[in-house]
Simulated scan of single mutants.
Amino acid sequence: MNEKEIRKYAGLMKELDLTGLEITNDETKVRLERGSELVSVLPSAGTAGDPAACDTGKMQKKEGADAAASEGKTITSPLVGIFYAAAEENGKPFVAVGDHVKKGQTLCIVEAMKLLNEVTAEEDGVIKQICASNGQLVEYGTALFVME
């Protein structure tokens, strides 16, 4: 089962307000579940800094971003969607930890309803942490990056 099919079923779950769905075909069995409480997805090794510095085990909402902001400026998601670190699958990420970024530079893409929304730097700085992992569902106010 490919990502496109999984996304189709996830959309169906949302449309029908289902909390769980299990799909079985020849060799694949996929179980999709959603609940009222969001669970964080740990970033893959080498792409992000210490996830504990970005949040405390749950997706960080805007009002909770102050903890990470004490160590730098937190860049949060402007909308609900899927976080993408690169313009294409297996492509080079827009930014990495330690990169110097300029105001207006693209940091990531958040896909919402088939629209790709670029998240850009509001000021010059250095990427200190990447708080989201590629393909992760993020909601409005979720911490994406910490800059200094």
Rank of each mutant, 00 (worst) to 15 (best):
Q136N: 12
N90D: 15
S133Y: 00
A68S: 08
F83D: 12
T120Q: 03
E118Y: 00
I75K: 02
G141Y: 08
R7I: 09
K8F: 13
M59V: 13
E122R: 09
I82S: 09
E123K: 11
L107W: 01
A65F: 14
P93V: 11
P43Y: 05
S133G: 15
I23Q: 04
I109F: 00
K61G: 14
L16T: 05
V41Y: 02
T56C: 09
A52S: 10
T28W: 06
N90I: 09
H100E: 13
K114R: 15
N25G: 05
M59W: 02
Q105E: 15
G46D: 10
D99A: 03
A96Q: 12
E37F: 04
S40F: 03
A52W: 13
E33T: 12
R7E: 14
V80S: 07
S133N: 14
V138L: 09
G35V: 09
Y140I: 04
D66E: 15
A53K: 13
F83V: 11
G49K: 01
V119S: 03
I127H: 05
K73E: 11
I130T: 11
A86R: 09
K61C: 06
Q129N: 15
N117Y: 01
Q60V: 15
T47K: 07
E88A: 10
C54I: 07
P51V: 06
V138E: 11
S70F: 04
V80F: 09
S133V: 14
S133R: 02
A132F: 00
A67Y: 13
A10D: 04
